[in-house]
Design a protein around this nucleic acid. Structure first.
Lengths: 166, 166
DNA sequence: GAGTTTATGTCAGCCTTGTTGACTTTCCAA
DNA sequence: TTGGAAAGTCAACAAGGCTGACATAAACTC
């Protein structure tokens, strides 16, 4: 019946290649906007996007270990280590030796780190809030549902643990 | 009344900092998944994400010029030129001198370029289709609405021109 | 026809952020 | 006491951004 091979006609028009393509392009353009505000702030501090990610998740899970952060961020320890080193050197992050297991480093934001994290997340939330307000709660619910359905199982685990309170 | 300062109580709970934070984290994790399938394919061909973006938009707008592609992708000409050079050298893209204005290069995918683009977009659409199917058309509509509301005005212009047919 | 602007390409160099591989130190646990 | 996990370090490399400077051809303008 001309629905692009989906057949049946029970309202599957939203699964056509054309609709999927529009969703793909929307993700590309929106993600660029999504990172643009923090990027501007970071540039002024001589930090990059990787530093923002580290600050965000340390803020979310104070006292988290390097290994845990590694799993959440999905990068190598060498890559993360370089970022953490500059954050510690810059006085934004403190790496405390673990009490129970003294091999572990528990990561915390310093007051300066909290200030920058706040500045970055304020900017990012500002854009998100404007978008949410413009489209209303029903659209927002759909937005989150699609994003969650796109994640890999492993990634979703990390996401849900954060979403539902660590 | 305890709605995080939004006040009024007319169902503004979806605008709390906590809800916004969940949306931000969902964007981060979903975007990583979103790019993971093409990234795997590209790695096997010794290409990167930048090549994928160029292939995608040349496929979408056959005969587009370098300047136009520059505006859509939002990168410098030096950066794009490096990518285009390898795509032309690899026989995936053809740069034809313009008829009316012979300074312009009109970009087209070769059959090999079309084949790779198809492989990449099939993978990306596959993930998107599964997510769409899992949540249904209403959620998908909300997903697109939020993404479009997040874009900068300038970016949205490019997006809409593509969305509604170039 | 001369001068300016536009479209494109190119060279050189820099930065961030990712990668792999090899190795060391620390230290918990069997 | 020994094996292995956690953490850190060094070296080298690549992708893909960036800036600045410059070249060329073509189109446009006066």
């Amino acid at each position: 019946m001309g629905e692009g091979g989906a057949g049946g006609g029970e309202g599957l028009l939203y699964l056509t290649d054309d609709q999927l393509r529009k969703g793909i392009e929307a993700m590309f353009f929106a993600y660029r906007a999504f990172t643009s505000d923090p990027d501007r702030i970071l540039a002024a501090h001589a930090f990059g996007r990787a530093h923002h990610r580290a600050l965000h998740f340390i803020h979310r899970s104070p006292g988290t270990t390097v290994t845990n952060l590694l799993a959440v961020l999905g990068v190598t320890k060498q890559s993360l280590n370089r970022v953490l080193r500059t954050l510690v050197a810059g006085g934004l992050v403190e790496a405390r030796v673990g009490r129970d297991d003294r091999r572990e480093r528990h990561l915390h934001l310093t007051p300066a780190g909290q200030a920058l994290e706040r500045q970055l997340s304020d900017a990012q939330r500002g854009r998100m809030r404007a978008a949410y307000r413009a489209v209303g709660p029903a659209a927002v619910a759909g937005f989150r549902q699609v994003l969650e359905a796109m994640m890999d199982a492993e990634t979703r685990r990390h996401y849900l643990r954060l979403r539902d309170g660590s």
